[in-house]
């Protein structure tokens, strides 16, 4: 994972929220995370295979997801639509990265979880964490990729 690769994800995250909600997120300095995951209320995970192996995930508080859905004109707000939405958001962000990584950057259907404990990613796998704020909410995109 190079600085250029990280910039690709930062640009995609900004584009996603600007386009779908008309509110730009503010990205903070990426950090390397080991062991304990910083997960929020709802998390969507995408498994990567092909030339790169690993995971990309987005973790968001419930209030942020509800605000995002509201901006999109979605009236549902139950647990099912929140899980579906966090999965779709991470799927779009990761799939958009194929423009940079190429068609061999193969993407799974999303795995989603509610709660701060459940992750399909090994705790030992190091990952870049991209903290960002969108309106008043703090969220994270995590990237655990082996070249």
């Amino acid at each position: 994972m190079t600085e250029k690769d990280l910039k690709v994800f930062i640009d995609i995250i900004c584009h996603y929220f600007e386009k779908t909600t008309s509110h730009a997120p503010e990205l903070k300095e990426p950090v390397i995370e080991l062991n304990q995951f910083r997960l929020l209320d709802y998390t969507g995970f995408i498994k990567i295979s092909g030339n790169n192996q690993g995971w990309v995930y987005i973790s968001m508080p419930k209030g942020m997801l509800l605000d995002v859905l509201n901006c999109m004109g979605e009236s549902l707000s139950d647990r099912s639509i929140l899980l579906d939405s966090v999965g779709e958001i991470v799927s779009i962000i990761t799939s958009n990265a194929r423009e940079h990584f190429g068609a061999q950057f193969q993407i799974s259907v999303p795995v989603t979880s509610a709660g701060k404990e459940n992750t399909p990613i090994s705790h030992e796998m190091p990952r870049f964490l991209l903290p960002f704020t969108w309106r008043e909410h703090q969220a994270y995109v995590g990237i655990a990729l082996l070249a």
């Binding site: 194929r98 423009e99 068609a103």
Partner: peptide, 9 residues
């Protein structure tokens, strides 16, 4: 309608 952004898709 897809998020797969590589031109080949």
């Amino acid at each position: 309608i897809s998020a797969l952004a590589d031109k080949s898709t």
